[in-house]
Amino acid sequence: MSKEKEMDTSTTKLSREDKNRRRILFEARKLFIDNKGTDGVNMHQIAKAAEVGQATLYRRYKEIGDICIEIVKEECQPLFNELNKYLNKNLESEPLDKLYHVIERFVTFLDEKNPWLCAVSRTILGYRPMQTPLYQWMRNTCRTLLSEAEQHGDISDVDITYTVEIMLSALHDLDFHLNNSRLTTERIIQGLDRIFIRGLKSKRI
């Protein structure tokens, strides 16, 4: 099967520049998956795999980190859409129940793309750790849900900003916990629930 057929057939109506963009991202993603991250992958390899000239590649992307950020955005957008839909449909549900669902889905999503997506996310240059689109969305969502829980009296005397940053630190190393520490997703989710949900509940609950 040709590269054109492997990619989404909707690209047939795109401009040449957009087709090149789709081809670059498609082939870069394959290389990242094969290499379980960006180690060993360079711009020359991506250009060769995508069958575009170096000038074409560098005209759109100055460095590999620029490619990474587009891939992370595209990979994560379906998750954002799914969770935003869930949150909009469950406005009256308990905030901590919604937070549990978000954490559970976030962990299983990263596990499905383990370890390559975590590694690619960390490669994005110009971003501090946990400032990529994936973690920015998670940060804003968790802060909102914990603020709702505080307003409902479900939690009290909690530094929400710091608590969320600590939670993100644990999630940021998810691939390490899965691959090196040999933890299961179930154990990780249970631990996060115990620390960041049940552990924060007010005594009256």
Rank of each mutant, 00 (worst) to 15 (best):
V41F: 03
D159H: 01
R187V: 06
S93G: 05
L146V: 00
R59Y: 13
I166R: 09
H101S: 07
M138E: 08
S147C: 01
R22S: 09
W116T: 06
Y61T: 05
I205D: 09
T141V: 10
T163A: 11
I197Q: 02
I124C: 05
I103Q: 10
H101T: 14
V158N: 01
G65I: 04
N179I: 11
L192D: 09
R16I: 13
I205V: 13
E74R: 11
L174K: 02
D154H: 10
S93T: 10
P133I: 10
G40D: 01
L110C: 12
P78F: 07
L171I: 15
E4Y: 09
L79W: 12
R16T: 14
E70T: 02
L57M: 05
S2H: 09
S169C: 14
S93K: 15
L110Y: 15
D39S: 12
Y162L: 09
T185S: 13
R16Q: 13
E70C: 04
V120E: 00
K73N: 11
M1F: 09
L168C: 10
L91V: 11
P95S: 05
K36L: 08
N81A: 08
D157F: 00
K30R: 13
I124A: 03
F106Y: 15
G153I: 06
R187W: 03
A28S: 08
E165I: 02
H101A: 08
D97V: 14
P95C: 04
I197F: 04
N140T: 08
V102P: 01
Q136E: 13
W137C: 05
G53Q: 04
E63I: 04
K3G: 12
L25Q: 06
C142M: 11
R60D: 10
L178T: 03
D39H: 07
C68T: 07
T163R: 04
V164M: 06
M43R: 09
E70V: 00
I155S: 02
L57Q: 07
P115L: 10
I155F: 00
F80S: 09
A28Y: 01
L87G: 04
E186V: 11
I24K: 06
L168V: 07
R182W: 06
V158Q: 01
T163P: 03
C142K: 03
V120D: 02
R23D: 00
I189A: 09
I71N: 03
L183A: 11
V158W: 01
E27W: 02
T108Q: 13
L200Y: 04
T132V: 04
E70Y: 00
H177L: 14
R23C: 07
P115Y: 06
G65N: 03
D157L: 00
V164E: 05
L87E: 04
C118N: 13
Y61F: 15
H101W: 07
P78Q: 08
I124L: 05
T123G: 00
A170L: 15
I155G: 00
E4A: 14
E148W: 03
